[in-house]
């Protein structure tokens, strides 16, 4: 009788130990997952963000948060683009602690065009040339001090040319 009781207790202890280990593993996974997701925006090519068709999904995949419009983000782009294959767009900001600048075209098959990582000491200003399939809103996102700020402008495209 006494043997069976100790056996029972022993196995119960094992179960408790097992549960403890499982809980530790469970806790371990969560803190690992979060920094990896955040780091993706900073040092690795954001593969997932470049697969998203929709603008909001791309911003979410890239930064994991949403942007608020700001008049401190300035976009220089034409009102009308004669050739959608080459649309010159530049962005600059008066915000400080800028870590990245991204360009998105909401009507393109893949919304995210480019994201530029800005290390400390580099000016928060970028010029580039992008493709636009058709008339669309173009969004610039500036990541500054861990927050997202955006500016948006509609550019009319007379000759569509996602690729030209």
């Amino acid at each position: 009788m006494s043997i069976t009781t100790s056996e029972f207790l022993g196995s119960r202890r094992l179960v408790l130990k097992g549960a403890g280990v499982a809980a530790l593993i469970g806790l371990g996974v969560i803190p690992f997952g979060v920094p990896q997701a955040l780091a993706a925006a900073n040092d690795k090519y954001p593969e997932e963000a470049f697969k998203q068709k929709n603008e909001a999904d791309a911003i979410k995949a890239l930064y994991g948060k949403t942007a608020e419009p700001s008049d401190k983000v300035k976009m220089d782009a034409p009102e009308i683009a004669e050739n959608g294959a080459v649309v010159p767009i530049s962005a600059t900001t008066t915000l400080s602690d800028v870590t990245s600048i991204s360009f998105l075209v909401s009507e393109n098959p893949i919304s995210l065009i480019a994201t530029y990582r800005i290390p400390a000491g580099t000016l928060p200003s970028v010029a580039n040339r992008i493709k636009m399939a058709k008339t669309s809103n173009v969004t610039v996102i500036v990541e500054a001090g861990g927050k997202l700020y955006s500016a948006q402008k509609e550019i009319k495209v007379t000759v569509g040319g996602c690729g030209g």
Partner: peptide
């Protein structure tokens, strides 16, 4: 620069 296929052919960038 992290680029997708939406950047124009023969890309140009300035910073």
């Amino acid at each position: 620069a992290d680029w997708g296929g939406g950047v124009s052919k023969d890309p140009y960038v300035k910073f």
